[in-house]
């Protein structure tokens, strides 16, 4: 079980060692101490290993993650797990702006709150936020599921495409072309599945569903105010 202390080991060495791991590696569980808010910790992983980070991380932690499980025992900076492809990223505390931005797969679980633009341009990732999300979350969200146990800030789902947004608390306002939808059985089972993978005990029936009104899919002059 490799232990890496970032107060002694340069970040470059940590990431290089993680990138060198083969799919069948025995070094499957890594501990990273003293992250001290460093940016780009455990980015670009491509092996089914677990990396536990004991503290706060800066920008882009677990960016473009594939296959790996990254667990941050602290808060995370901007662009957490940006463009993640697969695997699991968990943050015990809060996450800054653009968490899960453009993510294409995998599961991102944020224990606390997430700031603005959570799930911006998401493309298939599932995101679960234990607390609330800030303004412009799920802006241009294309695919995947965003689950918010708390409240959502202004302009949720602005210019949304086909992502599903589930919010248990209040929504300050909806963005252009985002509307509340009546969940189908399929929507409910997707939500239940995401919650269970996230290990969150919550009743799917308590969430409201928001998605695209699809009025902006083809330009029309009568919708010009929405542009």
């Amino acid at each position: 079980m490799p232990d890496v202390d970032l107060s002694e080991t340069p970040l470059r060495e940590l990431n290089r060692a993680l990138h060198a791991l083969e799919p069948g590696t025995n070094e499957t569980h890594w501990h990273v101490a003293n992250p001290a808010g460093r940016h780009s910790i455990a980015v670009g992983l491509d092996a089914p290993v677990t990396v536990e980070i004991g503290g706060n991380v800066g920008y882009y932690c677990a960016g473009m993650n594939k296959h790996a499980t990254v667990h941050v025992r602290g808060n995370a900076g901007v662009g957490l797990a940006e463009n993640m492809m697969s695997g699991v990223v968990r943050v015990d505390g809060d996450a800054s702006q653009a968490a899960g931005a453009t993510g294409r797969g995998g599961l991102l679980v944020i224990g606390g709150n997430a700031s603005g633009r959570c799930g911006i341009s998401m493309k298939g990732i599932d995101i679960v936020v234990g607390g609330s999300v800030g303004p412009m979350s799920a802006f241009m969200a294309q695919a995947g599921t965003l689950v918010v146990l708390g409240d959502a800030g202004e302009a949720l789902g602005d210019s949304i495409y086909e992502a599903r947004l589930f919010v248990r608390g209040t929504v300050k306002s909806l963005g252009a072309d985002c509307e509340e939808k009546t969940p189908t059985d399929e929507d409910r089972s997707i939500l239940a599945d995401v919650l269970s993978r996230a290990g969150v005990a919550a009743d799917p029936s308590e969430f409201r569903l928001y998605g695209s009104a699809r009025r902006l899919y083809h330009f029309h002059v009568d919708n010009v105010d929405a542009y």
């Binding site: 780009s40 980015v43 670009g44 940006e82 802006f139």
Partner: peptide, 26 residues
């Protein structure tokens, strides 16, 4: 979008570039 989703301004861009360098091992 016309703005990048996960960075705004030159200070962020510097961090973004560092991330891409780290992912691709410089």
């Amino acid at each position: 979008a016309c703005r990048h989703p996960d960075w705004t301004g030159p200070d962020d861009l510097e961090i973004k570039i560092e991330e891409i360098r780290e992912i691709t091992d410089w």
